Simulated assay, not measured.
Amino acid sequence: MAYFSKHYHAPGTAPGTLVSSDSDHKMSIHLIDYSGDHVEEQRLATAEECQDYLERDSKTWIQINGPVDANTLRALGDMFDLHDLALEDVLNSGQRPKMELYDDQVFLIAAMPMFDGERLEVVQVSLFAGADYLICLCPLEEDPFEPVRKRIRQPNNRRFTSRGIDYLLYAMLDLITDSAFPVLETFGDKLEEMEIELLEHPRKQTLTALHHLKRELLMLRRVLWPQREALTTLMRMENSLIHQDTLIYFRDCQDHSIQIIELLESFRDMATSMLDIYLSSISQKTNDTMRVLTIIATIFIPLTFIVGVYGMNFEHPDSPWAMPELGWYYGYPMVWGLIIAVTAGLIWFFKRRNWM
């Protein structure tokens, strides 16, 4: 995961400049037109094919997956009167989640977190919502909004198809918001495994993984915190696009966003405290090692003194200061007995003091 992952224009570029990014993935356009009991789906080759659906008295959802090229984006901009700055934000990946109101349409940039194997990835999803249309641009080649499409396809699902485009916008934002829960669940499992490992067998590899996890949590907080603010702004704005009976659904979506931020903050605090656990575990392990070495050294100090005394070998038959033990018949076993007695006494003393 790079520290800086934003696609941007060169400084001094005119506002509204559209420059396509290089990618090997293919772009696909999926259109759903619905009203009441009517649901129609089409795979489109170009954006210009959407023109026929604009004249109908229905709701139109245009889903573009994969990297969108500048020509397709210009065609959509001319067809739906999309603002140049909003189109520029679509191509410039790494944008901060936000909500912009342009006359009779709403432009939203949302962040969808997901795991690509073992790597955290934050996908920028751009949404344009008007009175009877919604345009969603997602850089992923595989469509993550298939669950919403299945709900529209359900027979007699008038609860969805009879509502305005604001309910479809809620369904999309709800899916984007709730995509953070599986990611946080994975983070929780990782933190639990790291905590057990830090308490039992702290290693440098665990510390490296912990720093990587803290970095991912920080990046996730950076993108999800403004997304909560964007949802709050969307709920409080005075616009005819959001109907009163749909606000309760947006409030539920905002509630999920608040829960996610709270979980994220608690995980960040846990990761920070686990760093203290690692340092304490390493310090405790060092103290245990030093205690064992100190006990061994303390035991050998008197033993070294004993063998040092009897290793001087000062012996003279006429001197009263000579060592009489050197001539004893059981002198050598006596020294070994003294060494064993001193060792046993020290071990008993250490255990009595709970030092070992």
Rank of each mutant, 00 (worst) to 15 (best):
L303G: 04
N287P: 03
S257A: 01
L279S: 09
T232L: 14
I62F: 13
I277P: 04
R163K: 11
T298K: 01
A344S: 08
I296K: 14
Q259M: 04
D269I: 01
L218M: 14
L275M: 09
W348V: 13
D69P: 03
K59M: 11
Q51A: 13
I32R: 09
A171T: 03
A129P: 10
F107V: 14
M290F: 04
L127V: 11
A271S: 02
Q227A: 04
W225I: 11
A131G: 07
F350Y: 08
T186P: 03
M274S: 03
P202H: 04
L217A: 02
K26P: 03
T208E: 09
Y3Q: 12
F314G: 05
R119E: 08
R236T: 15
D269A: 00
S28F: 01
W355F: 08
S240Y: 13
H256G: 08
G36N: 14
D103A: 07
E49L: 06
G164C: 12
Y3D: 11
A230S: 12
L82M: 14
L293V: 06
M290G: 00
L275N: 09
S257W: 01
R96S: 09
M290I: 00
I135S: 11
T298D: 08
W336R: 04
I152W: 02
Y249F: 09
V125E: 01
L210A: 05
L169C: 08
A171S: 01
L210C: 06
D104P: 08
Y53N: 13
A209Y: 08
W355D: 05
M194N: 08
T232Q: 13
H9I: 07
L191A: 03
L218N: 15
A14L: 14
G188N: 05
M270D: 07
Y167R: 00
T246L: 05
E48Q: 13
M274N: 03
R149I: 02
Q51M: 10
R163A: 15
M172R: 07
D178L: 13
T177L: 00
T233E: 14
L217P: 03
K150H: 10
F181Q: 11
T246D: 04
M334T: 01
S283Q: 10
R149E: 02
I347F: 05
P182I: 08
A322I: 12
F80L: 12
H30C: 06
M99Q: 08
I29A: 01
L234N: 05
M270I: 03
I165D: 11
L198K: 07
Q259C: 04
V309L: 14
M114S: 13
H83T: 01
L303H: 00
W225Y: 13
Y278V: 05
F107Y: 15
L91D: 07
G16W: 07
V307D: 10
M237T: 11
V106D: 00
R222N: 11
F314A: 07
Q259G: 00
L127Y: 13
G77Y: 03
L275F: 06
K351H: 08
L241G: 05
P302N: 02
Q254C: 09
D178Q: 14
D52Y: 09
S266P: 02
I339D: 08
Y8I: 07
S281D: 03
L338M: 00
A86I: 11
E55K: 15
C50S: 15
R352M: 06
I248A: 09
C138T: 15
I260Q: 05
D174H: 02
F80I: 14
F267Q: 00
D189C: 04
C253Q: 01
T206E: 08
G12H: 07
I296H: 15
V90F: 06
N354K: 15
G311D: 10
R228D: 04
